[in-house]
C-alpha cells in the first residue's frame, strides 16, 4: 500500500467513504484502488477480463485490512453498470466516490481509421462515463455528497497523431465534466477530470524503445508513476477538495507546455 495520511483526529482521509472505480485491475486503475483503500475508503472496483489480477488485488488489500470488492462489468452495458452500483449499495449502503477510469484505445491514423474503431472508443470511454455517472448521481444528490472523478488525458488538450478517436473521447469527457459539475454543485457533488500525460504503465513498458525518446520531451524528465495520478485522484475525492469542481487537471510533468529541454 502507498503512504497513508492520518489526520490529526486519528482518522484516515477517506474513512467511512465508499468508492467505485471502473477498470481497477491494472495500470492507473489498480493504483487508484490501492490509494483509496489506503486512505480508508471501502472500494468496489470493476474489471473486464482480468479476473485473476483483480482477485489478487482484492486478496492483497484485504490482508492489509481494507474493505475491497471486485466485480465484472462491461461499462458499455447499462444493466451491467447498474448491477455494480446496486451491488455496492447493497454491501456498503452508500456511494461517495466514483472514479470513471475504465477506457480503451484503438489507435490508428485517421485516414485509415475504421468507423468501428471510432465508435468503439467513443462508446466505451464516453458511454461508460455517462452510464456510471448516471447510475450514481441520484444517490449522491440524495445524500448531498459525492465526488465524481473522470479519467481524461493530456491529448484532450494537445491532440495526438493516431489518436483522433481517443482524443475526441477525452475531449468529450472534459466537456461532460464541466456540464455535470455545473448541474450538481449545489447538491454537494463535485465533478472533476484528471488528464495525465505519459504514465509508466505496462502498456508503455511494452514500447520501451519509444519511451526513451519520449522522455526527452518531458520537462520533468520522466514518466509519471501511476501512484502520482492516484494521489491526485485521492485528493479530489477528499473533503479538502470540496471547493474544486468542473476542472480538468493536467498531470503531465510539464509535457503539454511543449518547452524545449
Amino acid at each position: 500500500m502507498s503512504t497513508t495520511e492520518i489526520h490529526s483526529n486519528g482518522r484516515k482521509r477517506l474513512e467511512g467513504d465508499v468508492a467505485i472505480v471502473s477498470g481497477g485491475s491494472r495500470g492507473i486503475g489498480s493504483a487508484v484502488v490501492r490509494k483509496l483503500a489506503s486512505e480508508g475508503a471501502s472500494v468496489v472496483f470493476t474489471y473486464n477480463q482480468n479476473k485473476e489480477s483483480a482477485e489478487k488485488i482484492v486478496s492483497e488489500l484485504r490482508a492489509a485490512g481494507a474493505q475491497v470488492e471486485c466485480l465484472p462489468c462491461s461499462i458499455r452495458d447499462g444493466e451491467s453498470v447498474k448491477k455494480v452500483v446496486e451491488g455496492t449499495l447493497e454491501k456498503f449502503g452508500r456511494v461517495d466516490i466514483l472514479v470513471n477510469n475504465a477506457g480503451i484505445i484503438r489507435d490508428g491514423l485517421f485516414l485509415t481509421m475504421e468507423e468501428d474503431a471510432w465508435n468503439d472508443v467513443l462508446n466505451t470511454n464516453v458511454g461508460g462515463t455517462f452510464l456510471f455517472s448516471k447510475a450514481v448521481c441520484e444517490h449522491m444528490v440524495f445524500q448531498k455528497k459525492g465526488r465524481i472523478i473522470n479519467m481524461s488525458s493530456m491529448v484532450s488538450k494537445t491532440g495526438s497523431v493516431g489518436q483522433a478517436n481517443y482524443a475526441a473521447s477525452k475531449g468529450a469527457i472534459n466537456a461532460f465534466t464541466k456540464a455535470l459539475a455545473a448541474e450538481l454543485a449545489s447538491k454537494g457533488v463535485t465533478v472533476n477530470a484528471v488528464a495525465p500525460g505519459l504514465v509508466a504503465t505496462e502498456m508503455i513498458e511494452n514500447v520501451k524503445g519509444l519511451a526513451g525518446d519520449l522522455t526527452k520531451r518531458i520537462p520533468c524528465g520522466r514518466f509519471a508513476e501511476p501512484e502520482e495520478v492516484a494521489s491526485l485522484i485521492s485528493f479530489l475525492a477528499s473533503k479538502e477538495a470540496a471547493y474544486i469542481t468542473g476542472q480538468v487537471i493536467l498531470i503531465d510533468g510539464g509535457l503539454s507546455l511543449q518547452a524545449r529541454r
Partner: peptide, 15 residues
C-alpha cells in the same frame, strides 16, 4: 428552487 432541485425533490418524494 433551481432546476436540479426539482429532480432532487422528486427523488425524495419517491423515497
Amino acid at each position: 428552487a433551481e432546476s436540479i432541485d426539482f429532480l432532487d425533490v422528486v427523488f425524495r418524494l419517491e423515497k
